[in-house]
């Protein structure tokens, strides 16, 4: 290699080093400020955005607010001790809407439904019942599942209800507790619960997976996914009937 070439390479190297130096990040953060800004009514609305949303909103509201059925009586969550009209509505609708699907798929019949009181997200006002009512009652996407449980697990469920002292919605079962919430009598299909018999119970996927500590639902003998949202079951039921007739009754009481 002659000296001219060495010089050339040297130059290239030098340029290379210079370029690298320039490319190297030479900025340094000197100050950071952090804030959060509340989005409230003091901010003006972007008119173009409002206009863009409008047709979606209109279609949504038309669909949500068109009457599907009529409710003759206000229903509130607090209108009962261990069962309420609105809770019975949810549990009975799950029973009625799920049973034909379940029967069709398995040939079996549902024995009962158990949901959770916390899952009733609103009351139901007297007047027109709409799709929006179903969204208010059930904003979550929970789907209906059917669990096959042993009688022993049903006894565990009753223990759970004794401790819960709460109007968890049920359908298909009759439970009578004493004043101290001890089960005096529990009947499924009008019969005593047998530990060595299996029962089909519909609930939400959320509860089956241990939501609200309903651990008796975990590891069932069989689990059937119905692929049907609780909300959609309600909407379909509301479309089907003219006037709702759910009320507080004697299915789950203390005396």
């Amino acid at each position: 290699m002659n000296s001219k070439n060495t010089l050339k390479i040297g130059c290239f190297l030098l340029i290379g080093i210079l370029l690298t130096a320039c490319k190297e990040n030479d900025l340094q953060t000197v100050k950071i400020e952090g804030n959060r800004i509340e989005i409230n009514k003091d901010l003006s609305e972007d008119a173009a955005i409002t206009k863009f949303i409008a047709p979606y909103k209109k279609h949504l509201n038309n669909t949500l607010d068109s009457a599907l059925a009529y409710n003759p009586k206000h229903m509130v969550k607090s209108d009962g001790d261990l069962n309420t009209a609105v809770g019975n509505l949810m549990a009975d609708i799950v029973m009625e809407q799920t049973n034909p699907i379940f029967k069709n798929r398995t040939g079996e019949t549902l024995d009962m439904v158990l949901l959770n009181y916390g899952g009733i997200r609103s009351g139901l006002n007297k007047g027109n019942v709409t799709t929006r009512s179903a969204y208010s009652l059930m904003p979550f996407e929970n789907e209906i599942v059917v669990t096959e449980l042993t009688g022993t697990k049903i006894k565990e469920m009753l223990n759970y209800l004794e401790k819960a002292k709460t109007a968890h919605p049920v359908s298909g079962i009759k439970i009578i507790m004493n004043r101290d919430y001890k089960v005096k009598k529990a009947l499924i299909n009008g019969k005593e619960i047998k530990e060595n018999e299996n029962y089909y119970i519909a609930t939400s996927g959320y509860l089956q997976e241990g939501g609200d500590n309903m651990n008796f639902f975990k590891n069932p003998v069989n689990l059937y996914k119905i692929d049907y949202k609780i909300r959609n079951a309600m909407i379909d039921y509301f479309k089907k009937v003219d006037t709702l007739s759910f009320k507080k009754d004697q299915r789950f009481i203390r005396k």
Binding site: L27, Q28, T29, V30, I32, G34, R36
Partner: peptide, 30 residues
């Protein structure tokens, strides 16, 4: 910033050339 579009988070970064005298420390004001 929580949820549901109730707030907008805002972080402002000020950067300066390393050779600048101002780049002599990081000040975080939150």
């Amino acid at each position: 910033v929580g949820c549901y579009g109730l707030y907008l988070g805002r972080i402002d970064f000020y950067l300066d050339d390393r050779s600048s005298l101002k780049a002599n420390g990081l000040k975080i004001e939150v």
